[in-house]
């Protein structure tokens, strides 16, 4: 019984079990990466080189840079496991706390943009699949071909220029809401969600006015990437004999369409995983342009001030996010297309 359960369920258990292993390997990579930063972090942080040996040693211990490399690695891993990433020596703020409120803010924007991009892509692609000669379908194909041609920051600058400076439709790029408003009480940590939950309509409308443009920029910049992939795989899936056979067996229209989409979607899901990485990166630029406090701002600050601990924590967090997203991508794909599960043998079309 247990053996049978294991055989039928191990595909996802094995995949989930891999996550800590990946995280561990990435943590070690981050450890070495930050040690490649040129110069002596202790001196950079102290801001001068006339330190007493005692002072030097104290800073070294706080940064986790004392002792042998092996000792440092052990200290580092210990801190990672206990989630104690230290207190920044520059602004004295707890690194964890900073990330705990900045990360949800960034992820929120990236997620909203991704959900809208996926929804728009699906609608356009389904429409184009059913009416390939319609002008809308032709526009979608043209738009998809433009994937990646215009960088996010150009779109961002152009967006601000057109919608704020010229038309005045968007609020000033000065943050997530008007200065002078109080943030919603923290319940989930995601600022927009908290605003929604608090039913503070003034705050909410200010947020919408501030956020629609950055989200639009991310959507417009990222949608073509997945659209291109989905359009091509839908074309292949429509031409499949499997589609013709479904039609000829007399099933309702929606079954045919769902069948095409399910066969076409795994490539898009994979692309969405990569897209999430892009969007996190894009959010870094967008946060700068629109002065929205988030992970991007934090990273830029950390690099600028050579804040060793903050940089280390930033890298770890982003790596963890991306690994979790890849885990989700794999699980979704293995559900959509069971042939992708480990140990499944599919013979060739002989």
């Amino acid at each position: 019984m247990i053996a049978r359960l294991w055989r039928s369920q191990r595909w996802w258990i094995q995949r989930v079990a891999l996550l800590p292993v990946h995280l561990f390997l990435f943590a070690i990579a981050v450890f070495f990466l930050v040690r490649l930063i040129p110069g002596d972090p202790v001196l950079i942080i102290a801001g001068s080189d006339d330190l007493t040996a005692d002072q030097y040693e104290r800073i070294e211990v706080l940064l986790g840079l004392s002792g042998s490399l092996w000792h440092q690695l052990m200290v580092f891993l210990g801190r990672v496991v206990t989630l104690d990433l230290g207190r920044s020596l520059i602004d004295g703020q707890d690194v964890q706390e900073q990330i705990a409120w900045r990360l949800p803010a960034t992820i929120e924007i990236a997620l909203i943009a991704m959900v809208i991009a996926i929804a728009v892509t699906l609608l356009l692609c389904i429409f184009a699949m059913l009416h390939p000669h319609n002008p809308v379908a032709r526009f979608a194909a043209f738009y998809a071909r433009s994937a990646g041609a215009i960088p996010d920051f150009v779109l961002g600058v152009a967006g601000i220029l057109v919608f704020y400076t010229v038309l005045g439709w968007a609020a000033a790029p000065t943050g997530r809401y008007d200065a002078g408003l109080r943030p919603a009480p923290r319940t989930t940590g995601f600022p927009f969600l908290d605003a929604l939950l608090s039913s503070d309509t003034v705050l909410l409308s200010s947020m919408l006015a501030h956020l629609w443009l950055p989200v639009l920029v991310l959507v417009v910049g990222s949608a073509p990437t997945i659209m291109k992939v989905l359009q091509r795989s839908i074309e292949h899936a429509v031409d499949d004999e499997a589609t013709l056979f479904r039609i000829a067996s007399g099933v309702p229209r929606h079954v045919v369409i769902v069948s095409v989409l399910r066969r076409a979607s795994p490539t898009m899901v994979t692309m969405c995983g990569q897209l999430f990485g892009f969007l996190l990166g894009g959010a870094v630029i967008i946060e700068q342009l629109f002065a929205i406090p988030g992970m991007g701002q934090y990273a830029v600050q950390a690099v600028g001030r050579a804040d060793f601990l903050a940089l280390q924590a930033f890298l770890l967090t982003v790596a963890a996010c991306v690994l979790v997203v890849f885990l989700i991508v794999d699980l979704v794909n293995m559900t959509l297309d069971p042939r992708r599960r480990p140990g499944v043998m599919v013979e060739g079309n002989a």
């Binding site: 499949d240 004999e241 479904r246 066969r263 959509l336 042939r339 599919v346 013979e347 079309n349």
Partner: peptide
């Protein structure tokens, strides 16, 4: 009222269902 049987069921059957 018209059904079709194809040459290779490996291609004609939907692999994911």
């Amino acid at each position: 009222g018209v059904s079709v049987v194809f040459q290779n069921a490996m291609n004609a059957l939907d692999p994911v269902w």
